[in-house]
Design a protein around this nucleic acid. Structure first.
Lengths: 146, 146
DNA sequence: TTCCTTGCAAACGATTTGCATTGGA
DNA sequence: TCCAATGCAAATCGTTTGCAAGGAA
C-alpha cells in the first residue's frame, strides 16, 4: 500500500471511530510503516530521538490498537512490540531470532499461505474453536546470527 | 509421559546441569504438568494458595527454563506464561481466545503436523533463516466464549 | 564447612494514570 | 467554546535482585 493510500485508509478508519489522526499518531504510524518488523514503544521513542514522550507514545499506541490500526506482537521478553494491522500491512508470519531477539516479518507465497489457512480452518473445526486469525511463529537463527 | 517418567527425566536433566530438583521446583513442575495450557507465575502462585512466595516462583521458573525443562510462552498481555518443554510435553500449538485470554494447547494429528513442519522448512530456506522450532498460534474464540 | 536455595523486602523496568495545559473542530 | 490530546510526574504491576537464614552434600 502506498504511503498516501495508507494515510487515507487510516484517516478514514479513525474518523469512523471519532478519533483524531493527530501529528503524534501519524508519527507513530510513519515509524511503524517504515519498519520491517514490530517495534516496541521504547524503540519508537528512540527512532524519534525522544521528541515524543513515552507516555504519549503509549497512549497513541493503545488508541491506534483499539481502532484496529495497530496490532501488538508479543515476541519475547517483557516488551510489547507493535506493527500495522493486517488490512494495512498484509498478512504475514514471524521469524524470531533466538540469539539477537529480532522479529522479522515474512510473507508466504500464495500457495503456501493457502495451505496454512486450510490447516487453521481444519484445526478450528477439529478443536471446536472459531479461528479469527493466525500466525506461524518460527524461532531460529537469522542470517546475521547463524 | 507418566508422572514417574516425567520426574525421572527431569531429575536426570537437572542432575546433568548440576541443579537440585528441590521441593519448590517439583511443585512448580507438578502444577504445570497438571495444566492444559501455559500458566503465569501469578497463576501458579494462586494454585499454590500463596504458599510459595512469588520471588521463589520466579527463580524456580527461570532455573527450570535455563535447564530446558520449561518454555516461556508470550501469549497476550504483559505476563509470561510457562509450560513444560516439548521433550516433556510433546509438540503442540496454541489456541488463544480473544475474549477470555485463555491459551489452550492443541496437538495436531501426524499428517497435519508434518505439513506444518514441511512448510516451516520451506520457509526457512526461502528466507535464509534456520528454524529451530515453530508454533502455530491461532487466535479466535474458544467454545465457552463463542 | 561450603555452596545452593529460599524468603523477605527493596529495586527495576515497562506501562498506566491523574492532572493541568494545549490544540483542534 | 469545548472536548480531545499532550506532557509531566507519580503510581502500578510484573519481574528481578541483595542479603541474611536455612538445607543439602
Amino acid at each position: 500500500m502506498t504511503r498516501n493510500n495508507l494515510d487515507r485508509e487510516i484517516t478514514q478508519r479513525l474518523n469512523d471511530h471519532h478519533i483524531r489522526y493527530t501529528k503524534g499518531r501519524q508519527t507513530v504510524v510513519d515509524v511503524l510503516s517504515a519498519s520491517d518488523g514490530p517495534l516496541s514503544a521504547a524503540e519508537i521513542h528512540g527512532k524519534l530521538r525522544g521528541r515524543v514522550p513515552l507516555s504519549s507514545l503509549y497512549r497513541s499506541l493503545s488508541v491506534l490498537e483499539e481502532a484496529g490500526v495497530l496490532v501488538p506482537h508479543f515476541g519475547h521478553k517483557t516488551v510489547t512490540r507493535y506493527e500495522l494491522a493486517e488490512w494495512l500491512r498484509g498478512h504475514h508470519h514471524h521469524l524470531v531470532c533466538l540469539d539477537c531477539g529480532s522479529v522479522d516479518d515474512i510473507e508466504l507465497p500464495e500457495n503456501l499461505e493457502s495451505e496454512v489457512t486450510q490447516l487453521v480452518t481444519g484445526i478450528g473445526s477439529m478443536a471446536k474453536f472459531s479461528p479469527v486469525n493466525h500466525s506461524l511463529e518460527i524461532e531460529g537463527r537469522c542470517v546475521r546470527c547463524a
